[in-house]
């Protein structure tokens, strides 16, 4: 089910990190393989998530599995 969270994330990532890309980023697209997310961008994303969703992700949870796709990020947020 697509939620507000999905959309917010997608919009942020698209505009901030993938503005030059032609296609829109899908919720199941691998963000890391494609180079959209790298270690620097992840920091910005975390800042956004704190600001927008009032969620502070502890350092131990900032791992590949939780950020590989937009769905993964949403799943993680919902598990909290």
């Amino acid at each position: 089910m697509i939620t507000e969270t999905h959309n917010a994330l997608q919009e942020f990532i698209q505009t901030r990190f993938a503005s030059g890309m032609a296609q829109t980023i899908g919720f199941e697209d691998d963000l890391l393989m494609s180079g959209v997310l790298d270690s620097l961008n992840v920091m910005s994303l975390l800042a956004f998530m704190q600001q927008r969703f009032d969620v502070k992700v502890p350092a131990e949870d900032v791992i590949y599995e939780h950020f590989v796709t937009i769905n993964a990020i949403v799943n993680y947020l919902e598990s909290r």
Partner: peptide
């Protein structure tokens, strides 16, 4: 899994 991070570096 458990080791792979955001980039190879």
């Amino acid at each position: 899994p458990g080791f792979r991070s955001f980039s190879p570096d």
